[in-house]
Amino acid sequence: MDAIKTAQLTKYYGQVRGIESLDLTVEEGDFFGFIGPNGAGKSTTIRTLLGLIAPSSGSAKVLGMDIGRQREAILKEVAYLPSESAFYPGLRGRDMIALSARLRGRDCAAEADRLCQRLQLDPSKKADTLSFGNKKKLAIVCALQSQPRLLILDEPTGGLDPLMQREFFEILKERHESGATIFLSSHILSEVQRYCSRAAVIRAGELIACDRVESLAKSSARRIVIHGQADLSPLSGLRQLEESEGVISFLYSGEMQPLLAVLSTGQIQDLSVTEPDLEEIFMHFYEKEADPS
């Protein structure tokens, strides 16, 4: 079953575009990364899937259920971690955790205690006085305590220190191994590359790529670094060309034979050809927007 499936999903805020004709499929059991800069439409997509905002057109199903007609049934199986969490004034952390559990009609006390210990969160403090990082931890406990089938996480690691980020991803990996689907929006491409099996890139409200993370990396250019000198002008398919102190670096998406021919006429001391990381791929997709030709 698909955990998330959208068909031509569109959301406009008046005349302003949110997302446009989004066709996205996340299979159940995926650890899925959703990549895009601010304003690309990540949060709009997530908020539409959760029923916080209604789509202008198109449709979407979460765990096989329609987001418009079966919102309550969907939310029984889904937990959401917002990028910035807000809590009711005057309530302690443990009150917020208990409120979240009661709203789900479940007793999650044991799992909540376990998560608090792992994340080193003191739930006896007033929620609205917690630091940004501790608010994030509290929101994580609220979201994860109910053992949901689908976790929707919007920029989940903001505010967490590196140790906590690692612990958080360990928890996510455990949940994923026990069958949960993870849908994670992020700016931090390294964490998507490290933890996600599949990813989608959204640009200006439109989905521009969706594949396995390895395939996304392989389908793109190679990072070429040359120590020495060579005349690269006959080559096409070069991007991000940088030269400094005898080192030439560029992304190359053309055929290898012309590259080797050009390099053989130059003075090359060293050469490396590597797969670009997701960050470079991301930039590649966004450069396309700036220069569609």
Partner: peptide
């Protein structure tokens, strides 16, 4: 106003 709507309305309650 208090930005708690996201918390409340993403729980399974109509």
């Amino acid at each position: 106003r208090g930005r708690t709507a996201d918390f409340l309305l993403t729980h399974p309650i109509s």
